[in-house]
């Protein structure tokens, strides 16, 4: 007994050394724990975020394989093809806007859809936000209800409504307003309608989030200070809903830009959109490098738009300060 006690005392003699050693051990243990805890996040970002992008980036600088895939030879052809036509016989390059026009058409449709969704979504979100709190959840549930069904099924349902023998045309003919079917399917209007239908909740939800926080006593105060309804909307409600409007527009614009199913089904694939064009490169056209390049160019465009939005938001904050 006594021996053991003296023994431990002697081993503890150099106290400061032992302490420093223990501290170092603890620090490196903490470092290991930290790395271990961060691993899932790093792995997730790496596997689902960086890796696919890196593959797309590498593939875009390779040559297409004959039956799809790529052959491992460096080439910038994919990017050249985006802007120029290569003559089959003498390899000379002529500037071509065919792909640019696809991009432009898609961007235009995405902008129109975003504006449409904002015009419909704002009154909807305002309506929900001004309901008694108990009713709001029901309305929000109704807005999100379509999400419970697959996008493909919903787009088919829209197709059934607007086709020549569809619900709208049959009804119109039955009540005698039209003699023959109005052509709605396979038009730009049908794509527009389908896109708005698909992405409206993405506009309503962030708008609702910012309108719900709006202090309606401010609306009262503005009325009290001689502001009419339009002025209250313009000077108080819209400025306060700005963050929600920006978030909603981004959430609608980006998926619209790359939309694939809706233009394919409702547009009939008559006019190529970016999404369809990219899909085509990995399918029928068997040009993976060009598909990758187009996808990266699309991403760069989105990034530029986001940067502009961010800049204007920062400017707005400065001018308010």
């Amino acid at each position: 007994m006594a021996d053991r006690i003296t023994d431990t005392r002697t081993t503890r003699q150099p106290a400061s050394d032992a302490l420093a050693g223990a501290r170092a051990a603890r620090d490196s243990a903490a470092k290991r724990t930290r790395v271990f805890l961060l691993a899932p996040a790093i792995l997730t970002i790496g596997i689902v975020g960086l890796m696919p992008l890196s593959i797309a980036l590498v593939y875009s600088f390779l040559e297409p394989g004959t039956y799809g895939g790529v052959t491992w030879a460096f080439s910038t052809d994919a990017y050249v093809q985006f802007l120029f036509d290569r003559d089959i016989f003498d390899d000379s390059l002529t500037f071509s806007t065919s792909y640019l026009s696809i991009f432009w058409r898609s961007a235009f449709l995405a902008i129109i859809t975003t504006i449409g969704a904002l015009l419909i979504g704002f009154p909807t979100a305002y309506f929900i936000a001004t309901k008694p709190p108990a009713q709001r959840n029901l309305w929000l549930f109704l807005v999100t209800l379509p999400f419970w069904t697959n996008l493909l099924i919903r787009t088919y349902a829209m197709l059934l409504i607007i086709r020549d023998e569809g619900f709208i045309n049959i009804t119109l003919q039955m009540i005698g307003l039209t003699s023959g079917p109005i052509e709605m399917l396979y038009t730009d209007g049908a794509v527009f309608l389908g896109l708005i239908y698909s992405f409206l909740p993405f506009m309503v939800l962030p708008l609702y989030a910012s309108l719900e926080k709006l202090d309606f006593r401010l609306v009262e105060a503005a009325h009290d200070l001689y502001a009419g309804r339009v002025q209250v909307l313009r000077r108080v409600i819209l400025p306060m809903a700005r963050p929600g409007m920006i978030a909603g527009c981004i959430l609608v614009f980006i998926p619209c830009l790359g939309a694939y199913i809706t233009p394919e089904l409702l547009g009939g694939g008559k006019k190529l959109m970016i999404g369809n064009m990219i899909a085509l490169q990995f399918g029928g056209s068997r040009n993976w490098p060009f598909g990758s390049a187009a996808a990266l160019i699309l991403m760069a465009m989105v990034l530029i738009v986001l940067l502009i939005v961010n800049r204007s938001r920062a400017d707005a904050e400065v001018s308010h300060g």
């Binding site: 202090d215 006593r217 401010l218 009262e220 105060a221 503005a222 009290d224 200070l225 108080v236 400025p239 306060m240 308010h320 300060g321």
Partner: peptide, 15 residues
């Protein structure tokens, strides 16, 4: 007629 509200209700986005 103008009102001074209990919680002031000042517009936060204006100076």
């Amino acid at each position: 007629i103008n009102t001074v509200f209990q919680n002031y209700a000042l517009f936060p986005h204006m100076n």
